[in-house]
């Protein structure tokens, strides 16, 4: 029995049909047509204690809905979910003490006052004993480098600073599970790195189970060994990131800088594009060895420079979404 067990969860919403135009808006004021949208259909997975799981999928796939069900905010129409011995939406009060949630697009900090005041309020909300609170706070302040920013009204903080405070606020009660819904959205490279390092660190030190949704594949690359891919409300892939990469990463991007014209017809060359100072190729490395390919070309033309890239994770996901038709 795993730590988190999700079995056949389904959640549908009633959405009012909207038509454009003033006349239609007027009509719908009196009589609305509804349609049922299934945000999540029959989702099952399980997660072990201490895992970091990347939960990915395109917009509207049902990521946030799943997170909300798992964190006890929404009650699903059907299905079971056990975390430890608890069902999130039934044992809400007890359950939420064990979880922390960061919504990247929404703040839980009070806008006009320093973050530290919010922290103090959270201490009472979670009934954290004074001593433990001070200790945890000190630890978080040190690890997230918050010393100079928790006494400034939140509205004056930069997005990166605010996000660090948000994460600290979600961890004051030392939760067992941390849900991160797009934690690096809109952050600059340094802030992203800081947030990622910190997430790795608490996972290692405190054995916090982390469930992460993001559109930033470098987040996933840096943090999650396992991903769950969902689309149109269903689980499409659940397994290691490496395996997925192996399946999709056999496409290599090779850029050859040369002044001469290249004429090549080989099995395994998927794409050839003429560029300003040379050619760009996409090669299937299963069918065609890279060194063989370069060998042939170097005999033909004078090569000035070569650039070889694995197709990056973002492209891989686009291909994956296309293959799965989501």
């Amino acid at each position: 029995m795993s730590y988190i067990e999700v079995n056949h969860i389904t959640k549908s919403f009633k959405v009012a049909k909207k038509k454009s135009g003033l006349k239609e808006a007027f009509k719908s004021f009196f009589k609305r047509d509804y349609k049922i949208v299934e945000a999540v259909k029959d989702i099952s997975f399980s997660i072990e204690k201490g895992e970091i799981v990347g939960y990915i999928g395109p917009n509207g796939a049902g990521k946030s809905t799943t997170i909300k069900i798992l964190s006890g905010i929404l009650t699903p129409n059907s299905g079971k979910c056990k975390v430890g011995k608890m069902t999130p939406w039934l044992d809400r009060k007890e359950y939420v003490r064990k979880i922390g949630v960061v919504f990247g697009q929404r703040s839980q900090l009070w806008w006009d006052i320093p973050a530290e005041d919010t922290f103090d309020l959270l201490k009472d909300i979670y009934d954290i004993p004074e001593e433990r609170y001070l200790k945890t706070k000190e630890e978080l302040v040190e690890k997230l480098n918050l010393k100079d920013i928790i006494n400034v009204p939140v509205r004056q903080l930069s997005l990166g600073q605010r996000m660090r405070c948000e994460i600290a606020a979600s961890l004051l009660h030392e939760p067992d599970i941390l849900f991160l819904d797009e934690p690096t959205i809109g952050l600059d490279a340094i802030s992203k790195q800081l947030v990622r390092d910190f997430i790795k660190r608490i996972n290692k030190e405190k054995k916090t189970t982390i469930i992460l949704t993001t559109h930033d594949m470098s987040d996933i690359d840096a943090l999650a060994k396992r991903i769950i891919l969902i689309g149109k409300g269903q689980v499409l892939y659940d397994g290691s990131l490496q395996k997925l990469k192996n399946n999709y990463a056999n496409k290599k991007y090779i850029k050859v800088n040369t002044k001469d014209a290249i004429n090549i017809k080989m099995k395994g060359v998927l794409k050839k594009v003429k560029e300003k100072d040379g050619y760009a190729f996409i090669i299937d490395s299963k069918q065609l060895n890279i060194s063989d390919f370069l060998n042939v070309i170097s005999k033909q033309v004078q090569i000035e420079d070569v650039e070889i890239d694995n197709e990056n994770l973002d492209n891989m996901i686009v291909n994956l979404y296309e293959d799965l038709k989501i």
């Binding site: 905010i73 809400r92 009060k93 939420v96 919504f103 929404r106 909300i125």
Partner: peptide
């Protein structure tokens, strides 16, 4: 504004 979500996440 989605603030009710946050309320549901508090053990009070």
């Amino acid at each position: 504004h989605g603030e009710f979500d946050r309320i549901l996440l508090r053990p009070k």
